[in-house]
Amino acid sequence: MANTTRTIMIAIDDSDHSEYAFDFYAEHIYKPEDRIVLVHVPEYSNILSTSSLLTDPNIVSELLKDMEERTRDLVEKYSIKMREHNVSGHVKQQCGKPGEAIIEASREEGITMLILGTRGMGLVRRTFVGSVSDYCLHHSDVPVLICRHKTSKHSKGHHS
């Protein structure tokens, strides 16, 4: 019998959008034999590599402590969510620009599918800065599922 294990990568951060993506996976896509990789790209990895303003070691140290604490909280939150949904997997922390780092992690892990939340940026902002979901969609070697949060202000919906 062929190996039926899928490796699903879900990008996480401390937003409602990534929580919605995880919940969508757990409720609609999950199969018991799935292996889950939650990938997290801390914000500071991008800031530290691009900012010339961070020359004060005390500021850098405080920033790192704050981000490490937020990352620990995030890992704990998703560890609990995985246990609640009886999902097995691990968290992979990746450094760099978020889109590039997620794609790099997806290749390292040999994933079957990539799942992302989206902040639903407006057209102008997305045109100038791009979005992580756009980047991943165009650079992924595997199918990408982009979950738009129902309450996103840019979601299309019927008004009564």
Rank of each mutant, 00 (worst) to 15 (best):
K31V: 03
K31N: 07
P32D: 11
D34P: 04
R35W: 02
V37D: 01
V37I: 15
L38K: 01
L38E: 03
V39R: 00
H40A: 10
E43T: 13
E43R: 12
E43P: 06
Y44P: 02
Y44K: 08
I47D: 01
I47T: 11
L48Y: 02
L48H: 01
T50P: 04
T50C: 05
S52N: 09
T55D: 12
T55M: 11
D56H: 06
N58E: 12
N58D: 12
I59D: 04
E62W: 10
E62L: 15
L63R: 10
L63V: 09
L63D: 07
L64T: 13
K65I: 09
D66K: 13
M67N: 14
M67D: 15
E68F: 05
E69Q: 13
R70V: 01
R70L: 12
T71E: 11
R72M: 07
D73P: 02
L74Q: 01
L74V: 05
E76P: 00
K77H: 10
Y78L: 11
S79P: 02
I80K: 14
K81Q: 11
R83A: 11
E84L: 08
V87F: 00
V87I: 15
G89Q: 06
G89L: 05
H90L: 11
H90T: 13
V91R: 05
V91W: 09
K92E: 15
Q94P: 02
G99L: 04
E104P: 00
A105S: 09
S106V: 07
R107A: 06
R107Q: 10
M113H: 13
M113Y: 03
L114M: 14
L114H: 06
L114Y: 04
L114P: 00
I115G: 02
G120R: 03
G120E: 05
M121T: 00
R125T: 14
R125Y: 11
R126F: 01
T127S: 14
V129W: 02
V129I: 15
V129Y: 05
G130P: 03
G130L: 02
S133L: 01
D134A: 12
C136E: 03
L137H: 07
H138P: 01
H139S: 10
H139K: 12
H139P: 09
S140F: 08
D141W: 05
V142Q: 03
P143Y: 10
V144P: 14
V144A: 11
V144F: 14
L145V: 12
I146Y: 09
I146M: 13
C147A: 09
R148P: 15
H149I: 10
H149M: 15
K150R: 15
T151H: 15
H154L: 13
